[in-house]
């Protein structure tokens, strides 16, 4: 839409932010953790894993050995392989929920922030959405349709949208009064162009930060849903599923719970650290608003 806008503007900004980014300890540590987990998820077949869904009744609840590095679970599946593959579903869900919530939230937020008459209506709808408990919505959706990644993504996205809308709206409300927006109006720029060209770029920094938080919370909630048995179907390896299944044998074989919990904790820690670091370097003001 604005071929002339972004390319030349973006590098100059990136150059200004890059050193601050890289010197912030949270960004370095968090970024390293996230990168490691993402690489692990992508390279799962190459990391000495076996088929995470293969059931072997003869190998039930075996302790760690050369064949199964972290032992096997109740159905004889390899715990290590399932934990490594589990990263795929967690990261997929985290990314999908964050992307979907940001896309929808930004569109709605831009429109509600700019047009006052839409604002009154849409924000009440958002208030309604915010009142829906994530878990109840997910349980309802899963029991109405069937357990799948898509259902879980939808269930997790809906309650996140109002947070994005509120953030974008608050930025738009302040920016639209800026003289440079009035200047754009007075040279005859159309409203959609003003929204995309002049107002949207001001929301990038806070959105990046909010995006990481949404991603982390989606991963956590997915694990929680799977633990309750209303998340992903049991055959898909996911950390929540593993913790749920391992719970019964916790006293006999704590390793069943230990490995997925460790991965889950590290992932969420990494994403949150990254988000905190981005917030500090990109937009210190947002720290107060969150």
């Amino acid at each position: 839409m604005n071929s002339l806008a972004s390319p030349s503007a973006a590098p100059a900004r990136a150059k200004r932010h890059l050193p601050a980014f890289l010197s912030h300890p949270s960004v370095v540590v968090g970024g390293f953790l996230v990168l490691a987990i993402v690489l692990m998820a992508m390279a799962a077949p190459l990391l000495g894993t076996v088929d995470p869904t293969r059931i072997d009744p003869g190998m039930r609840l075996k302790p760690p050995s050369e064949l199964a590095w972290f032992g096997t679970d109740l159905f004889g599946r390899d715990v290590y392989s399932r934990a490594v593959y589990g990263a795929r579903s967690s990261i997929l869900i985290g990314l999908c929920v964050a992307t979907a919530a940001l896309l929808i939230g930004v569109t709605v937020g831009l429109v509600t922030g700019y047009f006052r008459w839409v604002d009154a209506i849409v924000m009440r709808v958002m208030d309604g959405l915010m009142a829906i408990p994530t878990f109840l919505l997910a349980i309802a959706l899963v029991s109405l349709t069937r357990a799948s990644i898509g259902t879980v993504v939808v269930a997790l996205t809906i309650p996140e949208i109002p947070r994005v809308v509120r953030l974008v709206r608050s930025v738009v409300l302040t920016v639209r009064e800026e003289p440079f927006v009035e200047a754009a109006i007075s040279v005859g720029t159309s409203t959609p162009k003003i929204l995309v060209r002049h107002i949207l770029p001001t929301t990038y920094a806070p959105l990046m930060v909010l995006g990481t938080y949404i991603c982390a919370s989606a991963i956590l909630i997915e694990a929680g849903l799977s633990f309750l048995g209303t998340g992903l179907p049991p055959e898909i390896p996911s950390w929540g599923n593993m913790i749920s299944e391992g719970r019964t044998f916790f006293q006999v074989a704590p390793r069943l719970v230990f490995l997925p919990s460790l991965f889950l904790a590290l992932t969420v820690l990494g994403i949150n650290l990254l988000g905190d670091g981005l917030r500090d370097t990109l937009d210190p003001r947002i720290a107060k608003r969150m």
């Binding site: 002339l4 806008a5 030349s8 503007a9 900004r13 003289p179 440079f180 009035e182 200047a183 754009a184 060209r197 002049h198 770029p201 001001t202």
Partner: peptide
């Protein structure tokens, strides 16, 4: 009154 993210030419 000038958008800080755009060059003056733009």
């Amino acid at each position: 009154s000038l958008n800080p993210r755009r060059t003056v030419g733009q």
